[in-house]
Amino acid sequence: MSRLATAFARARTENRAALVTFVTGGDPTPADTATVLDALVAGGADVIELGMPFTDPMADGPAIQAANLRAMAAGISTAAIFAIATAFRARHPDTPLVLMGYANPMTIRGADWFATQCKAAGVDGVICVDIPPEEDDELGPALRAARVSPIRLATPTTDAARLPAVLAGASGFLYYVSVAGITGLQQAAQGSIETAVARLKAATDLPVAVGFGVRSPEQAAAIGAVADGVVVGSAIVDLVARHGAAAGGPVRDFVATLRAALNRKETVA
């Protein structure tokens, strides 16, 4: 079983949702990212999403835009992202690591090159924000050939007609973007999330993780009661912004509160 499947299965065995956490690679500096990633694991994250910075992050709100700028000012590069991933894999052999980012940095040297690098660095999955199924002739097949999971996004606007196309070739987990919007701002109504998750779970056996706008342990717990995974990004990125190279402790403590909230699933549900 893949690391991703194992992580979701273990959370399910423990009768809780998996905690998926996002930070931007190279934030506050490429050298300090390892400390932040270790803090995520220490706090109890089940899956790590490592953001690949891009000059034009069209789907991101102010927090992650700023993180991209910090990382780029500190000299992040694609080679440095893969070095961060490789070192993470050596320190944490079992924690799934997913790269999240935009099409151009992922495909500029060719989809095969990128997939091969992912494989070599021990990356388990890839979320590409701006390659919808209609344009996935190269990246998805290259990742699958390298046994790296292409993780697809479903949104509130993904209707029943489109859902099969989104699910075709999806693996790892299905990422439900709970608001039509950018990262870190609005928060979806709990009722709409429950309806959407039920609809998605009826259509796929993949775990369904819910993200965008999830900032507090309370929200995480409520979503965790209905979804297989909860994604928290901007709230953690904000801590990195505030504490910089000293973010390890605050990030670990915050992630631990998220994880504790998910562990109490039964009392919330």
């Binding site: 789907a59 919808p132 344009e135 949104t155 606007t157 993904t158 489109r162």
Partner: peptide, 12 residues
Amino acid sequence: GGRYVAETLMPL
């Protein structure tokens, strides 16, 4: 060319 947009925008 093509349609390299986030899934949210695809249906639109």
